[in-house]
């Protein structure tokens, strides 16, 4: 009732005045716009220039270059700018190389799953169950402590762990669970997955824990008050609200795992060849055109993966 009376009063007395006012301001704005357009435009261009030039020079041009080089002709120890699809044909007709592409995708999917399976509960604990913000930070820092040692050492440390006479086998034997050492632990896809999971899980934990810690506890209370049990609350409130964190974590892990070569080199005994390993080998033997083909394929795979992940969540809205 009050509202209608208010709005009536406004329209009776104030509407004409308000209209006149708005017309005047509009005119003024238009005049200002006319005189200011050119200078405003040049300012915008100037502000945009450094970033644009940087991205063109160091991102767009190199990428186009890579695509271009992938069509060059490969000679034994050099490449010539004569365009050919020879390297592309070589990649897709070779069973080894195409298998490497499939293996890369397979390892990536497995590592994505394991990092999520290990990372989400960890993040849930840090982000939701630890209420103290200081303690939260301390625990998150603890997750990062392994990064203080070199990447190579962290990877190689898995060898004495998983080897035939490694820690895992010794413990299992001492416990009487196995009679002879399990040999498939090391130098298999399994060891590569274990190594990558350990290294990359923290990139999953961080973003998810961040999103979880931002969930207002009163939302969970409200859901509880409305009759939902713990599992329901997790499914309908907590998980959906943490999804942007999952997507960001998945992007981190994907980009790093898809380009990986060191972990597989160190823990597979050169038996597991990923696209990254092929690039390293090809560059090592100066096969630039072929390396470029693999590079283009890898970049394309990553682009598709990231585009697909971003479909899930509007990150610009969430962060």
């Amino acid at each position: 009732m009050d509202a209608s009376r208010d709005s009536n009063a406004l329209s009776d007395g104030g509407s004409e005045r308000a209209t006149a006012e708005s017309v005047r301001t509009e005119q003024a704005a238009r005049q200002q716009a006319r005189s200011g357009t050119s200078s405003a435009r040049s300012t915008t261009a100037m502000l945009l220039a450094p970033g644009t030039i940087w991205m063109l020079l160091f991102l767009v041009v190199p990428m186009l270059m890579m695509v271009y080089v992938s069509f060059w002709t490969q000679k034994t120890f050099s490449i010539e700018p004569t365009l050919t699809v020879q390297s592309w044909v070589a990649f897709f007709s070779s069973e080894t190389y195409f298998a490497a592409l499939l293996r890369t995708i397979k390892i990536w999917l497995i590592v994505l799953a394991t990092t999520f399976a290990l990372g989400y509960p960890t993040a849930l604990f840090i982000g939701l169950f630890i209420k103290n913000k200081t303690l939260q930070t301390i625990v998150l820092v603890l997750c990062v402590v392994p990064f203080w040692t070199s990447f190579l050492i962290r990877v190689l440390a898995w060898r004495p762990m998983l080897g035939k006479e490694g820690a895992v086998n010794i413990v299992l034997e001492k416990l009487g669970l196995i009679s002879e050492p399990i040999e498939v632990l090391l130098f298999t896809e399994f060891s590569v997955v274990v190594g990558m999971t350990q290294i990359y899980v923290v990139f999953m934990v961080g973003p998810i824990a961040f999103m979880l810690s931002r969930i207002d506890p009163s939302l969970i209370e409200a859901a509880r008050d409305l009759g939902a049990g713990t599992w329901r609350i997790f499914r309908t409130i907590i998980f959906p609200l943490s999804l942007p964190g999952v997507v960001v974590g998945a992007i981190f892990v994907s980009v790093m795992v898809l380009g990986e070569f060191a972990t597989s080199a160190a823990l597979s005994g050169r038996k597991v060849n990923l696209l990254g390993n092929i690039i390293v080998t090809q560059v090592g033997s100066l096969k630039w055109a072929f390396a470029a083909v693999v590079g283009v394929i890898l970049t394309a795979v990553m682009a598709v993966v990231i585009a697909a992940l971003l479909r899930f969540v509007d990150l610009r809205k969430e962060l």
């Binding site: 207002d216 009163s218 939302l219 209370e221 409200a222 859901a223 008050d225 409305l226 009759g227 939902a228 049990g229 329901r232 309908t236 409130i237 959906p240 609200l241």
Partner: peptide
């Protein structure tokens, strides 16, 4: 219980917010 900050579920529409209890209660 209606909390001070309203605690509406930000990822759900107005309709889904109101439907939440009926749909999800144990």
């Amino acid at each position: 219980f209606v909390s001070q900050g309203f605690a509406l579920f930000p990822h759900l529409s107005v309709f889904e917010n109101v439907a939440f209890g009926l749909r999800n209660r144990e």
